[in-house]
Amino acid sequence: MKRRMNLRPMPSVCAIIGLVVIGALTGCATSSKSPAVKRESDTGRIAAAKKAPATQRPYKINGIWYYPLASAHGYRQQGIASWYGKDFHGKKTSCGETYNMYGISAAHKTLPMGTHVEVRNMENGNAIRLTINDRGPFVAGRIIDLSYAAAQKIGVARPGTARVVVTAIGTSAPRRTPHRYDTLPDELDRGNFSIQVGAFGDRDKAMKLAQALNQTYKDAQVLPTYSPRNQQTLYRVVVGKCTSLKTAETYENALKSRGFRDAFAIAQ
């Protein structure tokens, strides 16, 4: 399902000059290597993207590209939860199921379909476990869209939104045995994370932004990703090498505060 979001223009690469303070964040490493596109790897990326299930392919909503995670293992994120109801009740979800606002489910922008998560309301401590079966919410600042019934159970329905922590606890897929992650919840913040700053169809534009970022951080990269929908390669600009999702989120917020409003943390 596609929901509306307010878009803000990407600032000029010159805006990056004032970001020196962000480079001091702990947990993010840098290197002296210049950004480069490994063009010889494009063929493999394209082949893998074509074989991926439709729900795992990059997709574009209101001019913004989203890249589903290959795995939910180790995923944990804090942010704002919302809910969706009668306007979508009875319609098809992104995975093909019929949305039931009175059932227990949720929509997420990048977690694989079939991911089991625990959603805990940080304002009252209530928690619920459910399965991701849809894409969304496409509203700035929100990380998960709960079904109406799920929102009711943890106290999100009446206020409309609430601050939550989303933790991946397992996954399942059609014709496969459900798998439960053996990672303890307090360890799920660990991993390899970066922050995506932009995505371009033009390689030169991506390189210019990466080079501007690289003047400050020395770790900006351009990652080519094939889009089956548009049958073209997109060049994603990412920065930061963090070993903690919490640190990556701090890095993301700092970038947003300096004008890069579409920056968001990604798992590598």
Score class of each variant (00 low, 15 high):
Tyr226Met: 06
Pro9Val: 13
Arg135Val: 04
Gly160Leu: 06
Gly198His: 00
Asp42Met: 14
Tyr66Phe: 15
Asn133Glu: 08
Gly103Met: 09
Gly103Ala: 11
Gln78Phe: 09
Ala151Asn: 07
Arg176Lys: 10
Ser41Arg: 15
Lys256Gly: 00
Lys256Asn: 01
Ala220Asp: 01
Ser31Asp: 15
Phe193Ser: 08
Thr131Gly: 00
Ala199Arg: 09
Thr233Leu: 02
Val117Ala: 01
Ala70Gln: 13
Ile46Gln: 13
Ala106Leu: 14
Ile154Val: 03
Ala173Thr: 09
Ala157Thr: 11
Tyr217Asn: 11
His89Trp: 02
Tyr217Leu: 06
Met207Gln: 11
Phe264Ile: 04
Leu255Gly: 00
Leu213Gly: 09
Thr131Gln: 08
Cys28Asn: 04
Ala254Val: 03
Leu25Ala: 12
Thr110Asp: 12
Glu187Asn: 14
Thr225His: 11
Met5Thr: 07
Tyr235Ala: 01
Ile154Arg: 07
Ser105Glu: 06
Val139His: 00
Ala48Trp: 09
Leu255Glu: 01
Lys205Glu: 03
His108Ala: 10
Thr43Phe: 09
Ile64Gln: 07
Lys208Leu: 05
Arg176Tyr: 05
Thr183Val: 08
Cys95His: 15
Tyr226Gln: 08
Lys33Pro: 04
Lys256Phe: 00
Lys256Val: 00
Lys153Cys: 05
Val156Gly: 06
Gly74Ser: 07
Lys153Met: 05
Thr233Ile: 02
Pro174Val: 01
Asn230Tyr: 15
Val117Phe: 04
Gly125Arg: 10
Ala29Gly: 13
Lys38Phe: 04
Tyr181Ala: 04
Phe88Asn: 01
Ala48Ser: 10
Asp134Ser: 02
Tyr181Asp: 12
Gln77Gly: 04
His179Asn: 11
Arg229Ile: 13
Leu213Thr: 07
Ala220Met: 02
Asp42Glu: 13
Lys153Gln: 11
Ala70Ile: 15
Arg76Ile: 15
Phe200Arg: 07
Arg129Tyr: 00
Arg4Glu: 05
Arg190Thr: 11
Arg180Met: 12
Ile16Thr: 02
Gly79Thr: 11
Lys92Gly: 00
Ala29Phe: 10
Asp42Pro: 02
Asp42Tyr: 06
Pro11Gly: 04
Arg8Val: 13
Lys2Val: 10
Tyr217Lys: 07
Arg3Cys: 12
Ile195Thr: 14
Leu209Glu: 00
Ile128Asp: 02
Pro174Met: 01
Met1Asn: 06
Lys205Thr: 05
Lys2Leu: 12
Gln268Glu: 15
Ser32Pro: 10
Gly160Tyr: 02
Lys153Phe: 02
Ala47Pro: 04
Lys51Asn: 03
Gln211Asp: 06
Gly141Cys: 00
Arg135Ser: 03
Thr26His: 15
Ala220Arg: 01
His108Cys: 08
Asp189Val: 10
